[in-house]
Design a protein around this nucleic acid. Structure first.
Lengths: 236, 236
DNA sequence: CGTGTAATTGAATGCAGTCAAACGAAGTGG
DNA sequence: CCACTTCGTTTGACTGCATTCAATTACACG
């Protein structure tokens, strides 16, 4: 079977301390805990599809995902990467729209699902959580603003450097020591974050390796000279 | 003087019916009305600068503005156009961050300013307004997602067609009959919406005119064949 | 441990950016 | 009212970054 149930307890969930659910009152915790269900998703599975109606929110307990939108020729534009501690799907629920993106696991993921009605009830009883989500959405808008400007004005080379810096900051520190980016991204995924063709991305990787800015071990990428990346990124 | 005061009354403000303040209780209205100040801003004035701290929110009573972020070489990337009825500046206030963009008037504008403290108090007493703003922010995120995908995957030609369609839908219907886009945008502004060089934009305008898809009267642009634009836009 | 997917390299093309120059429009001050 | 200035628009020529197509090699994963 490609997906099965496990049991997780919100009260003792260690991930929760790094999430928007941090500091949630025990009353709300009990409420979620009673209504949520937890699933193990194997690599490559879709949590939700672009264009479908939100049925609830997803809380990532373990694993990483990509959120992408499909362009004309079926090319994925990766809008965001998500990891343990993040809540997915609440924005479309709040704006009462269809999902603008699809969410797909990049590795095995443990994900709790909270049905829409239960989540909304919890929100109604917990203004602090409501405010946190609002704040988070507004923060995301600032990031998207930067992304738009980068895509419109920066070269692919600059955007790749920016992507590496982002990947290291957000995904480099968790699992292993050093500056390895251990996230399981194919070259194509990487290209779809940067917003370029796979071949172009590979050529740039080659350039960066020649200059000893990065090195690679199969699919893994190790950042050797972050200050060089920062220089290439040409941040304003 | 480049800026002067006028008097407007929230209760009788006709713009309010098209805004997020629609349906606001008279108690809240009185509260805003007592704390707001209204200014006339001439064309080209800056309401707020990227990188500065939000001091309150701006409610557009009349006129149009551009919200832009500066890229490396000082090139503006226009993130959003705003017109009468829109509220600006609340997102950075909610996320407690510096403005990610600057807001500049494209023509003479009448703008009400509500100080941060007063606006927050009103929000605290009016959950419906709070919810509306949250919903609006989430909606904007979906739009930004589409923008990112377009910038990453579509050609300049396609993006220009999309921009025209957007301009017509959002700004074409208000002032004059027909499909004129009467918004006061320079060629450079238009290029900074599309995300291209001014010269490239001008060449594409020329192409579109040759094919009778648009015509121009000085700075004004008249859409002649919207279905052709839709075809060129190649929407998925 | 095979097999299909992913990664890589080469070659050719073209879209779009940059630089430069000329022209037009709008506003300013003498 | 006109000369002057400035800003915006347009066109031309050139360059190069990035895409696309094609073919081969490597490796991830069942």
């Amino acid at each position: 079977m490609s997906r099965h149930r496990i049991e997780l307890d919100c009260q003792s969930c260690s991930i929760r301390n790094n999430s928007v659910f941090n500091g949630l009152c025990s009353h709300s915790l009990t409420a979620i805990n009673g209504h949520k269900s937890t699933n193990v998703h194997r690599k490559g599975q879709i949590l939700f599809h672009e264009g479908t109606r939100p049925m609830g929110v997803y809380c990532i307990n373990k694993g990483k995902l990509k959120l992408y939108k499909l362009g004309n020729e079926g090319k994925e534009q990766i809008i965001q990467l998500a990891k343990e501690g993040e809540i997915l799907g609440y924005r479309s629920m709040m704006s009462e729209e269809l999902y603008p993106v699809s969410a797909e696991t990049l590795e095995e993921c443990h994900v709790c699902f909270i049905p829409k009605q239960d989540f909304l009830e919890m929100l109604a009883n917990n203004h602090e959580l409501y405010a946190k989500l609002f704040k988070h959405a507004c923060h995301e808008l600032g990031i998207m603003t930067q992304n738009v400007t980068n895509l419109a004005q920066k070269t692919v080379r600059e955007r790749l450097a920016i992507t590496f810096i982002m990947l290291k900051e957000t995904y480099g520190k968790d699992h292993e020591a050093g500056d390895k980016v251990v996230i399981n991204l194919t070259r194509e995924d990487l290209a779809n974050i940067v917003g370029t063709a796979t071949e172009t991305l590979i050529r740039l990787l080659h350039d960066f390796k020649e200059d000893d800015i990065i090195s690679t071990e199969g699919r893994k990428i190790i950042i050797q000279k972050e200050n060089e990346l920062i220089r290439i990124a040409n941040l304003s």
